[in-house]
Amino acid sequence: MTRAPSENPPVLAGRTVLQIVPDLEAGGAERTTVDIAAALVKAGARALVATTGGRLVPELEAAGGTHIAFPAATKNPARILANAGALSRLIRREGVDLVHARSRAPAWSGLIAARRTGVPFVTTYHGAYRSVGRLKNFYNGVMARGDVVIANSGFTQALILKRHPQAEGRTRVVYRGTDLSRFDPAAVAPERVAAMRRAWGVAADRKVVLLPARLTSWKGQEVLIDAAGNLAAAGRMDFDVVLAGDEQGRTGYRDRLVDRMLKAGLGHRVRIVGHVEDVPAALAAADVVTTPSTEPEAFGRSAAEAQAMGKPVVVSDIGAVRETVLAPPEATEEARTGWRVPPSNALGLAQALNQALDLEPEAARAMGARGRAHVLSLFSLERMVAETLGIYRELLGPRP
């Protein structure tokens, strides 16, 4: 697969880069948007972000980025065309040198505006978008129309080229970056961990299995509850399950989860705690972190962050996890950083969780050290920033 060059971040002084993303709530695309904006400011560039807003806006502005309130989440065709006109005016007014779109609907507006104004256009494929039928594939195809198309994993790059072969030669793999200074076991004080466990209502002598993901069915919360039920039925009673993530208005799905855990006799052992602000402390408070997704993860940010925090991980064996989590048969048992199990397989998930929970402290620390080293080698924030800003420099060239 083609990798982006690992060069130092280029000098972009005086340039203006506009990123477009639907919102700035929690998520991989949103987190990356803020990270790249901060890096642009450090490189002497102006970083504009057009979005409907969200909880990450204060962080963006504190890093020196500029938030522009913009209806970027709309999927209405007429509104997308109107947005293209508004973006064209914005590009001319603000002297934007490059547009970077991170989602499909705003990418259509961004593509039209970039072509009208003659500025380079970059896209990042953050998800393994469903592609059912020609119309849906055409809609998704805007993400393959950038002058450079960034894939956040080798899996994603292969998916792009399978669905949109015309993107051959324009795709680059730039792995999602983890801030290893923030996601560092040594940087998380014991008081933060203890406060997190108290907030969850978990006793000090209980082990914690954490699923850090928004409440949506494909993230696998139901599979985890079933797996926990299997472990409890087999006599394993020393752990609690924590589901940490926004329900994002999906009250019906939350009710379904509660009903499922009650029927499994787990009502007092599964906690739905909502959005967690201090993610490093949440990961540090866990004994095992799992992401049992039922659909492919384009990258798998949670697994990378958990490994950066030195935690054993259990993930579904679909999508990009063969790049993010080392396990047999692709890696030796001695190199293992976690377990990969078939998706939607509660029994397989239960067996892997059982092995992870049974790890002796020394073995758990050794696995955690291997996981952090793996993330450090491939998935650091510094590497992602260097490669992304390197792409910007290639497209912009020297300032006239």
Results as ranks from 00 to 15, higher is better:
80 I>Y: 06
332 T>C: 02
110 G>F: 04
317 D>Q: 09
260 R>I: 02
337 T>V: 10
19 Q>G: 01
149 V>D: 03
272 I>M: 15
70 F>Q: 09
106 P>K: 04
347 L>M: 12
337 T>W: 01
106 P>N: 06
317 D>P: 09
92 R>K: 14
200 W>P: 04
329 P>D: 07
261 M>W: 08
326 L>V: 14
274 G>H: 05
39 A>S: 09
119 V>Q: 06
89 R>T: 15
227 A>F: 09
71 P>F: 02
65 G>Y: 07
298 A>F: 00
332 T>Y: 01
355 Q>H: 08
232 A>L: 05
193 V>D: 10
104 R>S: 00
308 A>Y: 00
322 R>G: 13
141 G>N: 06
143 M>V: 02
57 V>A: 02
367 M>W: 02
32 T>D: 13
181 S>L: 11
173 V>A: 02
366 A>Q: 14
283 L>S: 03
311 K>H: 07
52 T>I: 13
318 I>L: 13
115 R>L: 08
280 P>M: 06
19 Q>N: 03
368 G>I: 04
45 A>R: 02
70 F>A: 07
114 A>N: 04
207 K>W: 00
299 F>C: 09
96 V>L: 01
130 R>S: 11
15 R>E: 04
356 A>C: 05
99 V>L: 13
239 F>P: 11
18 L>R: 06
199 A>L: 12
222 E>L: 14
176 R>P: 04
365 R>I: 11
374 H>Q: 10
252 G>T: 07
42 K>L: 12
279 V>D: 00
334 E>L: 10
48 L>C: 08
136 K>W: 00
352 A>Y: 09
375 V>A: 05
275 H>M: 12
151 A>W: 07
128 A>F: 08
388 T>L: 09
96 V>W: 09
256 R>H: 14
335 A>S: 12
317 D>N: 14
217 S>Q: 15
289 V>P: 11
328 P>Q: 08
45 A>D: 00
333 E>H: 12
259 D>E: 14
399 R>L: 13
168 E>F: 08
267 G>P: 07
303 A>M: 13
122 V>I: 14
357 L>R: 07
131 S>G: 04
216 T>K: 10
380 S>V: 07
116 R>L: 15
18 L>A: 03
88 S>K: 09
145 R>S: 08
215 L>C: 05
156 T>S: 13
264 A>I: 02
353 L>V: 10
229 G>A: 12
113 A>Q: 06
172 R>D: 01
395 L>N: 08
242 V>R: 02
372 R>D: 01
95 G>V: 06
332 T>G: 15
1 M>V: 14
30 E>F: 03
302 S>H: 02
393 R>N: 10
143 M>P: 01
169 G>K: 11
218 W>Y: 15
365 R>W: 05
346 A>V: 05
317 D>L: 08
25 E>N: 14
196 M>A: 11
228 A>W: 03
85 G>W: 04
267 G>Y: 00
81 L>M: 11
294 T>Q: 13
215 L>N: 03
249 G>V: 04
98 L>V: 12
21 V>L: 07
200 W>D: 05
135 L>N: 00
315 V>S: 09
3 R>K: 02
398 P>G: 01
398 P>C: 02
346 A>S: 15
282 A>I: 11
25 E>S: 13
131 S>Y: 00
161 L>E: 10
132 V>W: 08
159 L>V: 04
125 Y>A: 14
387 E>T: 07
358 D>V: 08
92 R>E: 15
199 A>C: 11
325 V>W: 06
